[in-house]
Design a protein around this nucleic acid. Sequence first.
RNA 1: GGCCCCAUCGUCUAGAGGCCCAGGACAUCACCCUCUCAAGGUGGAGACACGGGUUCGAAUCCCGUUGGGGCUGCCA
Length: 463
Amino acid sequence: MTQEIRLRFAPSPTGYFHVGGARTALYNWLIAKKQGGSFILRIDDTDELRNRQEWTDGIIAALDWLGIDFDEGPYFQSQRKDRYFQQAREFYEKGLAYYCNCTRDQIDERAKMRGGQPGYDGFCRDRALSSEPGYALRFKVPPGDTVVNDVVRGTVTFANSTIEDFILLKGNGAALYVLANFVDDVDLKISHVIRAEEHLPTTPKAVLLYEALGVQSPIFAHLPVLVNEKRVKLSKRRDRVAVEDFRDQGFLPEAMVNYLALLGWSPGDDLEFLDRQELIDLFDLSKVSKSPAFFDVVKMKHFNKHYMASLNVNDFIGRCLGVLEANSWWTGDESQMASFHVIAPFVQERIALLDEVVEMVDFLFTDSVLLEVEQYNFSDIDLDVLSKFLVKIEGEDNFTRDRLEEHFRSLGEDLGLALRKLQAPIRLSLTGKKVGPPLFVAMEILGKERSLNRIRNAVASRH
RNA sequence: GGCCCCAUCGUCUAGAGGCCCAGGACAUCACCCUCUCAAGGUGGAGACACGGGUUCGAAUCCCGUUGGGGCUGCCA
């Protein structure tokens, strides 16, 4: 009898969606796909004070952008309060839970007198309090040990004596995380719970709940946390690691997915660049590493450059449109599109991030990026190069990249100068920059008239 | 403090007792190629935290130490 494979990603919408959550979602999705199961999105919004609709929307948009699609959901915990309450009452009626009216202060006070160990002491366990407004419902933790079988950690044993009688229902009757999670995982028939390591300490509580109800626990897997350069867990407040920020910076979703998959997992065999299907085929939870991983944007950029270069040109062009449109000089008319098509392949292999496209091509579409006459700081040699190059190309009617390069090379021979020296002043006068796409392709696009004008203008800097 | 997890180059990792005086990738350095940049090529530097065991043999197994991290909320 095989159990259905059902995995869920259950973020709480209390902030922007960061890369750690994205990786957790990805790993769940990967297993669901690999095993032909379902991937479910559940929004854990039981904390009414901190949840916001916009964060939920952001999570869904980011998952969509990454190509992590879900088969069911989103389900919202905020809509299942009655069910949690009902389940909690069942625990109470079976004598597995009890009401407690201790305040935090009283609990701390007693802990202090006991000798420092913080935590609840079971004060109300045998007081047989009944339900009243303001009373919390606590689970009666039995004696013994609780074992968590974890695919990445192995067997982890907790002494129940170190687990306090935890709260199921708050004084206002609302469910707490452990309860809501448990009920939903049972109701949704979740087979694998894959989440970050920070949840490991609460897992025995969930296991206790499964045991109390005689329900089989799902398979657990706790992933190593993602850390910042200081080696502490990535935080929404401290670290700028929002998925949407990376998207806006011009990262490609396929690059991000590939990089994220490798943060904490490796397929072996020195494999690095894996597409979605390869990821699905090779992914293996038992090979997930146990130690925290540093989220390295520099390395992700390398992945991005690779994926950028592998795009077919039309795809690349399509993805550039968004960043081009943010510039006033871009009209997107036929002429501009034609120019961009010509330069695109040369740009594509040079940039790591999508928005770098702007500085690579702006000179083709606007004069505003060119230097002012007084800003050129040409040497006599530079000026000599420019005027002699002008002479050579002024009479050229076939203004193509090949012809231009021939003139350029012959100029080098004439002057006995290295070509790298020659191109510098030409590029600067033509593009206003020291680096850029191949010069003669650029000139071909600019055309004879504009090219000559720009060089003449630069030469005019001589006084 | 308590409970739990973790520990290979700066970073991500390969390594599941001999194939490892430890391999790959990013970053870094040098050189080559080259109209700039990028790409590519070649080469360099760079790690098994420490101490005990077990074993003919340990990065790999066990114990301890140290270090780091997570949790410790009527947050998730």
